[in-house]
Amino acid sequence: NRTSFTQEQIEALEKEFERTHYPDVFARERLAAKIDLPEARIQVWFSNRRAKWRR
């Protein structure tokens, strides 16, 4: 089942994506704690966001 992201979560994710397309585990963990999502969801979001960026 899909995770629905809040506007705040999307903004935080997009901001980090501007900084780096490949956040390391520490950056992902920090973001996970900040926006209250599992680190695995963040990893998947970045993977999908990079795919979207390449299109």
Rank of each mutant, 00 (worst) to 15 (best):
R19T: 08
W53C: 11
N1S: 04
L31G: 00
R28G: 03
E18K: 05
R19W: 06
E18L: 07
R28M: 13
E14L: 03
N1T: 05
L37K: 02
E16L: 10
R55T: 10
R50Y: 03
P38E: 13
R49C: 04
F17Q: 00
S47A: 14
Y22I: 03
N48I: 14
E16H: 03
K34D: 11
A32Y: 01
P38S: 12
A27K: 04
R30P: 02
K52P: 02
E18Q: 07
R55C: 09
L31H: 01
A27L: 07
A51C: 07
R2Y: 14
I10Y: 15
D36P: 05
E11D: 12
R55G: 04
F46D: 01
I10K: 03
R30D: 15
E14K: 00
N1F: 10
I42G: 01
T3I: 12
Q9G: 02
S4I: 10
K15T: 14
S47G: 12
R41F: 12
I42K: 00
F46I: 02
A27D: 13
F5I: 10
R28E: 04
W45H: 01
R19I: 09
N1H: 15
N48S: 11
S47C: 13
R19F: 07
E16C: 08
E11N: 08
R30F: 05
L31N: 00
T3C: 05
E8T: 10
F5V: 10
E29F: 06
W53Y: 15
R30K: 15
A32Q: 07
E16R: 01
S4T: 14
R19L: 12
L37G: 01
A32S: 08
D36L: 12
R2Q: 14
A40N: 07
R55I: 12
Q9K: 05
A51F: 05
W53I: 12
L37S: 05
T20N: 11
I42S: 00
R50S: 02
F46A: 00
R30L: 09
A51K: 08
F26T: 14
R55N: 15
K15I: 13
E39D: 07
E29K: 07
R49T: 08
E16Q: 05
D36K: 06
F17G: 01
R28Q: 06
R2K: 09
N1Q: 04
D24W: 01
Q43V: 09
E8I: 11
K34G: 07
Q7M: 10
I35K: 02
L13A: 01
K15F: 05
N48F: 09
Y22E: 08
E8P: 10
E39I: 10
I10D: 03
F5P: 05
I42P: 00
R50N: 06
E14M: 02
D36T: 03
E14W: 01
A51Y: 08
N1E: 15
W45Q: 00
F5K: 02
H21A: 11
D36M: 12
S4H: 11
S47L: 11
R2N: 15
Q9V: 03
S47M: 12
N48K: 09
A12P: 03
R19Y: 06
I10M: 03
S4R: 09
V25N: 14
P38R: 04
D24M: 02
R54V: 13
W53Q: 12
R54W: 08
R41Y: 08
Q9F: 02
I35N: 05
